[in-house]
Computed example of a mutant assay.
Amino acid sequence: MKLYAALAFALLVSASAHAEDDPSSEEATRAVNALAIERFGNICRANLSDPDAARAAAEAAGFTFVGTGTGIDERANLTFQINTHPTRAIECIIVRGRVGADYSARDDFFRSLGFTHQRGVAQIAIDGETYVFMHVKMGGQIFTVLME
């Protein structure tokens, strides 16, 4: 339940910060989704178990932080969020705001990771830890990894 609250918050921040952005062509939408997927790989995937490193990578990629764990890249219409939980769980999210063309980046996302998925979810063991990678299309594109 906390995950969906975090996802909804991240989407809301992204949508409100970038209401004027509305790429109308599928090509433009694919290009921005590709950037979001690339940022996810460079920030979240590259720093799976280290939230401080993920935040530093987000800052280096151009995200400006508006709170403890939320950053916005206004040029790319992306939001980054890192959450840590007392149970050692880590959650890393990249949100692509409003999507003009009706195109889901789900298959592109999982192909970039080298994983197969079931309805937008893949549970993968990496270095002895279990990670859940997810894609949700909820007004925008939400790319998430959770370390359980």
Results as ranks from 00 to 15, higher is better:
137 K>T: 13
22 D>S: 13
62 G>D: 08
84 T>N: 07
99 V>P: 01
117 H>A: 13
105 A>P: 02
87 T>D: 15
146 L>R: 09
47 N>R: 02
115 F>V: 04
7 L>P: 00
29 T>E: 14
80 F>A: 04
7 L>M: 14
109 F>A: 09
107 D>M: 02
29 T>K: 05
134 M>G: 04
83 N>A: 13
147 M>R: 15
6 A>C: 09
122 A>P: 05
42 N>W: 04
10 A>W: 01
101 A>T: 07
16 S>V: 15
51 P>H: 02
17 A>C: 01
38 E>V: 05
62 G>P: 07
77 N>R: 09
127 D>C: 08
79 T>D: 00
147 M>S: 14
56 A>T: 06
122 A>C: 05
46 A>Y: 09
134 M>K: 10
25 S>Q: 04
14 S>C: 12
121 V>E: 00
98 R>C: 05
87 T>M: 11
123 Q>S: 08
69 G>R: 08
101 A>L: 06
56 A>W: 03
47 N>C: 05
139 G>P: 11
68 T>S: 14
12 L>K: 10
79 T>F: 00
85 H>M: 11
100 G>E: 03
96 R>A: 04
99 V>N: 07
99 V>I: 12
95 V>K: 04
140 G>I: 12
15 A>T: 14
64 T>K: 14
133 F>S: 03
30 R>G: 00
59 E>C: 01
121 V>W: 00
131 Y>H: 02
123 Q>G: 01
12 L>H: 10
133 F>E: 06
74 E>S: 15
145 V>C: 10
129 E>F: 14
135 H>A: 06
111 R>C: 03
59 E>A: 07
38 E>N: 07
72 I>R: 06
145 V>E: 09
55 R>G: 11
140 G>M: 13
96 R>V: 01
42 N>S: 13
75 R>Y: 01
40 F>Q: 04
101 A>E: 05
16 S>A: 13
11 L>N: 11
129 E>P: 02
44 C>S: 12
23 P>A: 08
30 R>H: 01
98 R>G: 14
88 R>M: 10
119 R>V: 08
148 E>G: 05
44 C>A: 15
15 A>Q: 15
145 V>G: 08
14 S>F: 00
57 A>H: 06
21 D>N: 09
35 L>I: 12
140 G>V: 14
2 K>N: 11
147 M>N: 10
69 G>I: 11
20 E>S: 09
59 E>V: 13
138 M>I: 13
54 A>N: 05
144 T>F: 03
39 R>P: 02
138 M>R: 07
26 E>G: 13
15 A>P: 03
2 K>W: 07
106 R>I: 14
23 P>I: 07
40 F>H: 01
135 H>P: 02
19 A>R: 13
